[in-house]
Computed example of a mutant assay.
Amino acid sequence: MNRYSIQEFVEKTEQQDKGQGLFELETERLLEINLNGQIWTKAGAMVSYRGQIKYEREGILEHGLGKMFKKALTGEGTALMKATGAGKLYVADQGKKISIINLQGESIFVNGNDLLAFEPSITWDIKMMRKIAGMLSGGLFNVRLEGRGMLAITSHYEPLTLIVKPGDPVYTDPNATVAWSGGLTPEFVTDISLKTLFGRGSGESIQMKFEGEGFVVVQPFEEVYYSQTTSG
């Protein structure tokens, strides 16, 4: 067990500027945002801040009636907070590992629960996986992000990226799937014979099948989602 004097502890854990720009990994589980303008973060993700920053929940019509309607249907947890101002903002999500992605005109799908923060220059839209709604706890939805700018995603432990090639589909557990490239459209398949291979929760015989050309990101953890509209 490590023991430190107060001075040693402060020196070991003190925040340090690494000069990495807008998004900076202060640790692998804590994101520093060097804010000068505006940023979107997952609601409840703010850990600390310094400077003149105004932090407010997204307005009900902030992103248009269509997105509000989708959110009402999904009952999901991608509620966003808008941070505006100048200073340093620190965000995290339950100690999950953070990865920073710099989009340069590409698109990516991210599981709604794994999206931590993104620049306002990126356009986004909620995509509900209707065929699987109700089959998993709280259903399953994702966010499509496209454009130029940085975004931060989270995963339980280290993420693994699998390359999808034509004629060589990749199958994943929905509860362990974090993100995938914008050109892929997953298909949901059920196979009772694979029940003992995929998952240990409800809907365990359901897999996501990725075909074509691109990539899919998985985590070594099965995350169970609960709809905000679910009671009990």
Rank of each mutant, 00 (worst) to 15 (best):
M81F: 10
F188P: 01
P174W: 02
Q207F: 11
V217T: 13
P159L: 06
V224R: 13
R144H: 13
G203H: 06
D114G: 00
G95V: 10
R3K: 14
G66K: 15
M128K: 05
E24S: 14
F69P: 00
R200G: 13
L103Q: 05
L194E: 12
K97L: 14
T230C: 00
Y49P: 00
G232Y: 12
G134M: 06
I132P: 04
G44F: 10
G105I: 01
W124G: 01
Y225H: 14
L151W: 03
A86F: 09
T172Y: 08
V143S: 02
L80M: 15
E58P: 00
E187P: 00
E58Y: 00
L25P: 07
Y171F: 15
A152H: 05
N102V: 11
F215P: 00
A152L: 02
Q20T: 13
I206C: 02
R200A: 07
E58K: 00
E11N: 14
K12H: 10
R130G: 04
V170F: 05
V216N: 05
G149V: 02
V216Y: 03
M68P: 00
Y157H: 13
K42C: 03
D173G: 00
S227L: 01
T13W: 04
E211P: 01
G51I: 01
F210N: 04
K127Y: 10
K42F: 02
E119F: 04
S48N: 13
L162V: 14
T84Y: 00
I33W: 06
Y225C: 02
Q207H: 06
T196M: 12
L31K: 05
G51N: 06
E24F: 05
G149R: 05
I132A: 12
P159G: 10
E119A: 13
N36F: 06
S137A: 12
Q228T: 12
H156D: 09
G87W: 11
T13M: 12
K88E: 08
L89Q: 05
Q228N: 14
A45L: 06
A176M: 11
L73W: 05
Q38R: 15
L115E: 03
E28I: 09
A86Y: 09
I192N: 05
T230N: 10
S5W: 05
G182H: 09
S231C: 03
V216H: 04
L22V: 11
G64Q: 08
Y157A: 15
A133I: 09
I33M: 07
S99Q: 15
G147K: 08
T190K: 15
L184T: 09
E158A: 14
G149C: 06
I206H: 04
K165A: 13
G37V: 00
M208T: 02
E8I: 04
N34H: 14
T84M: 05
I100T: 10
L25Q: 10
K96C: 11
L80I: 13
G112L: 03
R57S: 14
G59P: 01
K18A: 10
I108N: 01
W124Q: 04
G203A: 07
G95I: 08
V110A: 04
K82H: 09
I132F: 08
E213F: 09
G183T: 12
